[in-house]
């Protein structure tokens, strides 16, 4: 494992911790899209089915379990926690997730490495992760004002993907025969989804003001 991959994973983990801390400390999930969180849960469940039949490293196993547990913890807070669930912007969070899930699934059936249940589900998780942030970005666009923690959460999620891109370039030059087109293309799309957000995030940071998205 190279430093870019590790930095990417740590940024991913940190983004989730930031979101959980925001929810726990402020007892509020205002501005957080439950749809996106549920999509991430679907992504992790379909991707980490290999926990049952393949072992890569203790690091991999532990991280997978953490990602699964934290995803469901966030969903639990937003759906079941007495105080937190009342702060959820349900009326604003209306993205039709089936418009993401169905095309990703069809694409996974058409473009995959191997026509097996676990491989198709794994491929589906790769495609779905690329677009899973969209309900969150749409919610942000609607509520306009982005609180710092939510902004940092999304910024870190985007950074994690950007670090993975660097990791792939590094692996391409250091590992003989290493290539994974499905992951590369999806990952590039996924990183591009954040570009607009990055622009406004950096702008707010440079001007030292609260982040605001244009109408």
């Amino acid at each position: 494992m190279n430093i870019f991959r590790l930095a990417g994973d740590m940024t991913h983990l940190l983004s989730i911790i930031v979101l959980l801390l925001k929810i726990q400390a402020t007892k509020s999930c205002a501005g957080v899209s439950l749809k996106t969180q549920e999509l991430y849960a679907v992504v992790f469940v379909t991707r980490y089915l290999d926990l049952f039949y393949s072992f890569i490293s203790l690091y991999n196993t532990v991280m997978k379990i953490i990602f699964l547990l934290t995803a469901f913890t966030i969903i639990w807070y937003m759906r079941k926690h007495k105080v937190v669930c009342q702060t959820y912007d349900k009326e604003q969070d209306t993205f039709r997730v089936l418009f993401l899930i169905v095309p990703c699934f069809v694409l996974a059936l058409l473009v995959n490495h191997e026509m097996s249940v676990t491989e198709v589900l794994w491929t589906f998780s790769i495609y779905l992760e690329a677009v899973a942030i969209l309900p969150q970005l749409v919610l942000l666009q609607r509520t306009k004002n982005v609180d710092n923690l939510t902004g940092n959460y999304i910024f870190m999620l985007g950074s994690y993907r950007a670090l993975y891109l660097v990791n792939w370039v590094y692996r391409y030059f250091t590992e003989l025969g290493y290539r994974q087109w499905i992951v590369w293309v999806s990952g590039t799309v996924q990183t591009c989804v954040y570009l607009d957000f990055f622009y406004y995030y950096v702008q707010a940071w440079r001007n030292n003001e609260r982040m605001k998205l244009p109408g």
């Binding site: 393949s54 990602f67 994974q180």
Partner: peptide
């Protein structure tokens, strides 16, 4: 067909 890459990334 290309060999399946082991999914060693998260």
């Amino acid at each position: 067909s290309s060999p399946t890459t082991t999914h060693d990334e998260l």
